[in-house]
């Protein structure tokens, strides 16, 4: 455990909690892509199946349980409890275009051809693109609530910190996981455009809106 990974995990946790609290407090999930949230729930479910087979640390287990729990709570709020506020008309990204190629790739490029390992690989690849429905929704409506941009910022920050963590681990532990690194780089790149808008607009007190 190094400081980059810890702050990365905490940043990820912050993102998840910010989103859940925003939806819960405002009793509305307007502007949030339910599809991205279902993909993240799928990511956590397929990645953390090792909760049932191996114990790494209390920290590891606790964080996994919190991530899974919060992601399902978010999906529940969007599709069940607060369904009336869900903006499905703007959430039109075709997720099969992500799931099918990502599933195929997980079968072809993995560390070990076993069910758990293929599901882990699937979750890594899927996480790298799971935010696309949300970014697509923002590009479609041309704007995002400021709190939603904070959520995206912490989610992107988590990825950037994990990249530094991997550089650190490579130098000090000789550890590297090519699948996680390549997917992590792809995922971080997807946030770059958003980071630019966040810094130039949201941090200066303006609402995030895109030119028509």
């Amino acid at each position: 455990m190094n400081i980059f990974r810890l702050t990365g995990d905490l940043s990820h946790l912050a993102a998840i909690i910010i989103l859940l609290l925003k939806i819960w407090k405002s009793r509305s999930c307007a502007g949030i892509s339910g599809k991205s949230q279902v993909l993240f729930a799928l990511v956590f479910t397929t990645r953390y199946l090792d909760l049932l087979t191996s114990f790494i640390s209390l920290y590891n287990t606790t964080m996994k349980v919190i991530y899974i729990g919060c992601s399902y709570a978010t999906v529940y709020l969007i599709y069940m409890k607060l369904k009336a506020t869900y903006d499905g008309n703007h959430d039109t990204f075709r997720v099969e275009f992500l799931i099918v190629p990502v599933g195929g790739l997980a079968f072809l490029v993995n560390h070990d051809f076993s069910p758990l390992e293929i599901l882990w690989t699937f979750s890594i690849y899927l996480e790298s693109v799971a935010i696309l429905p949300q970014l697509f929704m923002i590009s479609k409506t041309g704007e995002a609530e400021t709190i939603t941009t904070h959520y995206l910022f912490f989610l992107g920050l988590y990825r950037a910190l994990y990249l530094i963590n991997w550089i650190w681990r490579f130098y000090f532990e000789g550890f590297f996981d090519m699948i996680a690194i390549v997917a992590g780089v792809v995922q971080t790149i997807l946030y770059c455009d958003f980071f630019y808008l966040y810094v130039t607009k949201v941090l200066k007190g303006k609402k995030l809106s895109l030119p028509a």
């Binding site: 191996s54 640390s57 963590n165």
Partner: peptide, 10 residues
């Protein structure tokens, strides 16, 4: 199966 594959990150 390769038992050495372990994922300690989140």
């Amino acid at each position: 199966a390769d038992e050495s594959v372990s994922h300690d990150e989140l």
